[in-house]
Design a protein around this nucleic acid. Structure first.
Lengths: 224, 224
DNA sequence: AAGGGATAACTGGTCCGACCAGTGTGTGCT
DNA sequence: AGCACACACTGGTCGGACCAGTTATCCCTT
């Protein structure tokens, strides 16, 4: 069993370092990123690896590269897409923005409740039955190993979001889900604690009761 | 005045071509992307340019690159983040998914209404006044040049979203906004038509009337 | 003939060094 | 002082080489 090399790839190291400097504020918006040649020397890698890292940062909306001119740092709050949430949660040893967890939980609730409503409206019988089945599965694992519970619970919501027929909700769901793993305290906060609430939600969806589904969803996602 | 070269960069050409093939379904999920060397030959560019394009696709969640193995196409519906919306709207001459416009409008409403509610709750007096001022500006341009109206209207919502103190809403707002330009019919659909509704919204926010702000926001974002 | 391990032929990852292509700037001429 | 040009940056691309991990094949062993 040959172990995979633990050494992070060169371009990955550069990407992570620059990403953290930008998200952490060490590289402020408007500032010029050092030249590719300078970065290559600093990190002890070839310029091509630096370029790959910068291309990824540009794709994520963290920097703007311009031929001939300097590469400048953008304000990720203005130019970043939702996928940056995962980077914010992940980034190095740095503390993520204080409002990050609350933001994710609020958005999850807003989208989840509306997706439930739309799912009831638009999804086919088979999909509604599947949601109900997955709700039962998730409910059965409340109190059990958190890993299994989280997996089933996520699968249920995934089916709801798909059933809503809303592409944007589906993509946002991906972005939100990806931000959870690196912050255990956030995963804790979104984990359901009452099996009955999950079952009630599944039943409401199954019965195509939009009002009940929405209110059960609110119960699950935004208690209190 | 030396004109900027109109020739798209090599890595940009490759990126756009592969992105369109993936989003258009020509490269199905699970399929293997041709090797970097093969792509370099096909597009008549250096392998490094291909790599930069692939790195961007990986960053966006469209492919998974693995050392030694083939680069495989992912299902962007499952692995893509919200920023893909812009690519879906943009992509080449291809027709975007039928539900795209509806999805964006629905998500915009869901987030906008909740952001209005939170903004009233959390924003400072200065920010609320600014929202109201921008609402007035936008309202004054209803019926005028669409470009100016869109700019002011977007500025107003931007302030609301910032005032909501929700990072996820702010990033999602960026992603949604970026998808509009390439689809004029979508920009049309989200443009406000009644100055009075905008003014009412601004006044409700200014007065910290959460209920009124939410209902005015609903009026603006999800009429009917 | 079937199983298993060495190996060859892929894949992506990195490096070197060079040159092209835009920008910006300083300098010297007018 | 004002302007134009050369030079010194920046990023963009190229060619070729080699390293590293995977995968499939083929031959040897059982």
């Amino acid at each position: 069993m040959p172990r995979a090399s633990d050494a992070p790839r060169a371009s990955e190291r550069v990407h992570a370092a620059l990403r953290d400097e930008i998200l952490g504020g060490a590289l402020a918006p408007g500032a010029a990123v050092p030249s590719e040649r300078a970065l290559a020397k600093r990190f002890g890698v070839h310029r091509q690896s630096v370029r790959e890292a910068l291309k990824r940062l540009e794709q994520a909306g963290l920097v703007r590269i311009s031929h001939g001119g300097a590469t400048r740092v953008l304000d990720w709050r203005d130019s970043g897409g939702l996928e940056i949430l995962a980077d914010l949660a992940d980034a190095g040893g740095r503390e993520p923005p204080a409002e990050l967890a609350r933001s994710i939980i609020e958005m999850r609730a807003s989208i989840g409740i509306d997706a439930a409503r739309l799912c009831v409206e638009r999804a086919g019988e088979a999909e509604l039955a599947e949601v109900n089945r997955l709700a039962g599965e998730a409910a059965a694992h409340v109190g059990g190993p958190v890993e299994t519970l989280e997996e089933r619970y996520a699968a249920m919501w995934r089916t709801v979001v798909i059933g809503s027929g809303n592409l944007a909700y589906r993509l946002a769901f991906n972005s939100l889900l990806r931000a959870l793993p690196s912050r255990p305290e956030m995963a804790d906060a979104v984990r359901p604690s009452e099996a009955e609430a999950i079952r009630a939600f599944g039943a409401a969806v199954r019965a195509r009761d939009g009002g009940a589904a929405a209110s059960c969803a609110r119960e699950l996602l935004a208690p209190g």
